[in-house]
Structure formats: C-alpha cells, structure tokens
C-alpha cells in the first residue's frame, strides 16, 4: 500500500534560541499511516522539531500543518489529534497509573467511562493490570514507559509522536514496545519516531529523515538511503547515518568534536541527497 495523503506538512520551520539556530528552515511531509523515522545526532534539532509540531514550542518562523491544522493558529485542534511520548516520562510518581490516566483523560475532556475503557484495554495489552493501582514511584522505568504510552493513546490520536520511546529499557520491554508500535501503525495511527537505535529505526520506519545542524540532510525510504552509501557492501542504516552526519561527536548545542571511526568512511562532506 502506498501512502500518499499528507498528515503533516512542514514549511520552512525555524526555531532560534537567542543566537543559536536549533532548527533551520526545514520542510518535509509525513504521509498518513506511515512510520516516519526521525534521526539525528544529539543536539541536531529532533526534539525541538517535535516540540514545535506538538505545540509545546512556538516556532521562530515558518509553520506546519498537522491534520490540516496550523500549529501556530489552531493549537487546540492540533492537540486533539496527537499523542506524545516525550523524552521525559509524563507520569506523576505519587499517583497510581489509573489516577495518572484519569487526570490526563479529564484534561482531554474524556468521560470517566471512556478513560476507564481505553486505559484498561491498553494496560492489559501492555501487561500492567496488576500494577495499575500502585503508585508510579514503585514502577521500574519500563513499567513507567508502558503507562506513559497508554497515556499518549488515551485520546485515540491520529498521530503519535514517540521521542526515544525505548531509551534505557531492557530488551524485553524494548521488544514489547516495538511490536506495539507496529500494531498501532496497522490500526492506522501515523507514528513519528525519533531514536538513536539504528536497528529500531530500520526495523520500524517506512521512511527516515536524518536531521543534523538543524537541517534535513536526507529523507527517503531505508532501502533508497542504503543505495547511496559509498565504499561499503551491504550497508546498514547506521552506515547511512554516519555518512550523512559525519563522525564528529556533538555536545549539547551541536558543536562537533572529532572522533575516530570506521576506515571506510570519507569526510562529512559527502551528503546523501
């Protein structure tokens, strides 16, 4: 099935923090129903872009349409259609899973019944029934992340933003969440996924965008991107990534420091387009 209809249209989106340009006039589209991998080194502008698309940050210039709604003008309409699993887990430690879900559900104007029905369905799917009334402070990171995902799904969003959803989780939970992401996608939910895990990105993404220094450096299907890797047989997505973004280690603001790297790689100048 080819996905053609755009669900997100980003136009010259820019975010500056004082003199630092975190996102530099990027434009791209996300198709309805796809899993869109959004990759980039630390400080490349991934989270800033996601925060703008989810209305948590106001763009300095440019804009984006999410499900036909302007992120600058119709923020509440955008909010009604998206779910967010952010870098930090959105969960109150002193409340139980159900209390957390009820709170966020109410903020989204869901009825008590709806909240209960939807929560229990996903809680069961993610194996958290036994824990749903325990305080979140007693959960492991993996358990917290599972409830965090249930929270993001409460509103039955059209688009789900997942910002490093498997970071710091054990292989079992990671596997469970990856399978679950695919399951959700099959139900028609568009997924925007940022990750540093190239295997995850490769396994899940229909298309991948690589962002660096606030600009989209490459955007295509994984297969097409791999074809552009030079000097290597059977390249992986990691090879693509390193060729596109170079070998320099980034500090927080994207400044580069030279690191050693695989001998097959040339300079950072050969950008994949």
């Amino acid at each position: 099935m080819t996905k053609t209809e755009n669900t997100i249209e980003v136009k010259k989106l820019t975010k500056k923090f004082k003199k630092f340009t975190a996102v530099d006039s990027i434009s791209f589209d996300v198709k309805k129903g796809e899993i869109f991998g959004f990759l980039g080194p630390n400080g490349a502008g991934k989270s800033t872009t996601i925060r703008m698309l989810t209305t948590l940050l106001t763009p300095t210039s440019g804009t984006a349409m999410v499900e036909g709604h302007d992120i600058k003008k119709d923020q509440n309409e955008v909010r009604k259609r998206i779910g967010l699993v952010a870098e930090k887990i959105i969960l109150y430690n002193h409340l139980s899973a159900m209390e957390n879900l009820e709170f966020f559900g109410k903020l989204n104007h869901l009825s008590k019944d709806e909240i209960k029905k939807r929560s229990e369905r996903w809680i069961e799917r993610l194996g958290m029934e036994e824990w749903k009334d325990a305080q979140a402070s007693t959960y492991s990171t993996g358990m917290k992340q599972r409830i965090n995902i249930v929270r993001a799904l409460l509103t039955e969003p059209d688009i789900l933003f997942l910002d490093e959803p498997t970071l710091g989780l054990d292989p079992q939970t990671t596997f469970m969440i990856r399978t679950f992401i695919q399951e959700l996608n099959k139900k028609g939910i568009t997924i925007i996924l940022t990750t540093h895990d190239m295997i995850e990105a490769e396994a899940l993404s229909d298309r991948v965008a690589i962002i660096d220094h606030g600009k989209i450096q490459a955007l295509d299907t994984v297969e097409n991107l791999k074809k552009k890797v030079e000097n290597k047989k059977n390249p992986t997505l990691e090879d693509v990534f390193l060729q596109v973004t170079g070998l320099d280690i980034r500090d927080k603001r994207g400044k580069a420091k030279r690191a050693g790297g695989p001998p097959w790689r040339g300079g950072g100048e050969n950008r994949v387009r």
Partner: peptide
C-alpha cells in the same frame, strides 16, 4: 523539569 508539564500543555485546554 520532570517533564509532566508537557503532558498538561499538550492537552487542548
């Protein structure tokens, strides 16, 4: 700092 504010801010309220 905890990140929970994002959960509130992303609600249509």
């Amino acid at each position: 700092e905890q990140g929970t504010l994002d959960g509130i801010l992303i609600s249509p309220i």
